[in-house]
């Protein structure tokens, strides 16, 4: 790999200050995307600011009706956490579907949400649950956070410290994985709250989004059958060798129906 500088701060303030002092830096969380990307020189930061030593970014905690996950919480920790299993079992299920075992021991929720890969799993949960992304300087609503392909509301140097997820009454996540990479060709989380049903979709568009047509149908009738014939507009959907935009739109309906069935059975 090409040469770069490496820093390992122990606090959020130190991390931000190292970032702002460097020429073309990047934060390093689990590294499951960043390191392979750097090997291919698709990204070439001059400096890496490794966040593994920042204790304030660790931990899984339930606070009343919220589940609070430190940004550095690894996928395997979420998948196996008793606290998560009690609060939002669908989130533990989702975390256990990311990549493979080795990837889940390294990758973090903060890294996934910061990168906003269109096929990442966590963004579906962040939007479906209406989570708040807490950074070193502000709290960003999930409705404002995901903006476009690999584009978020994060400003240069701004870093995610924790993610706060409202606990739904019930939720379920289904994905159609790419058989080689396990990334979501399409993934759908359906979450039922006291005041409505929220549907988060990943994989289909440039970034995760709420599916309003599905939410309206499920608000009236929370059954898989209620989604039959509901229009899923595919304008702007991703199209590649794995799936056309039209096929992805079809998969959104299929995954949503399966998620609703799982939710009702939970």
């Amino acid at each position: 790999m090409y040469p770069f500088n490496y820093h390992k701060p122990s606090s959020v303030d130190e991390a931000v200050s190292l970032f702002l002092d460097a020429e073309d830096p990047a934060y390093l969380s689990g590294g499951m995307t960043l390191i392979p990307t750097m090997k291919q020189r698709l990204a070439m930061p001059t400096d890496l600011v490794d966040l593994s030593g920042v204790q304030a970014m660790r931990g899984i905690e339930r606070q009343d009706q919220k589940l609070v996950l430190g940004a550095f919480t690894r996928h395997a920790e979420v998948a196996r956490s008793e606290v998560v299993a009690q609060a939002i079992p669908a989130l533990a299920h989702l975390a256990g579907l990311i990549g493979d075992n080795q990837v889940r021991y390294r990758g973090t929720i903060g890294g996934s949400v910061a990168n906003s890969d269109p096929a990442a799993d966590y963004p579906a949960a962040v939007v479906a649950l209406g989570a708040e992304v807490v950074t070193n300087k502000r709290t960003i609503s999930s409705a404002d956070y995901f903006q476009d392909l690999f584009e978020t509301a994060l400003e240069p140097g701004e870093m995610i410290v924790r993610i706060e997820l409202p606990i739904p009454r019930r939720a379920a996540y289904r994905k159609f994985p790419n058989p080689a990479s396990r990334y979501a060709v399409v993934g759908v989380m359906v979450a039922q709250f006291d005041n409505g049903v929220q549907v988060g979709v990943t994989g289909a568009g440039p970034c995760a989004f709420r599916a309003s047509t599905l939410e309206a149908a499920l608000a009236a009738d929370l059954r898989p059958e209620a989604l039959a014939g509901v229009d899923i507009p595919d304008a702007g959907f991703n199209a590649d060798l794995h799936a056309s935009a039209e096929y992805r739109a079809h998969l959104v309906g299929v995954m949503a129906r399966r998620a609703v069935a799982d939710l009702l059975a939970s």
Binding site: Y6, K8, L28, G31, M32, I35, P36, L48, D50, S52, A76, N101, Q102, V103, Y105, R106
Partner: peptide
């Protein structure tokens, strides 16, 4: 934990 050592940096 089982990890892929081609994707772990020395500093990590």
């Amino acid at each position: 934990d089982a990890v892929k050592s081609c994707t772990v940096l020395a500093g990590q």
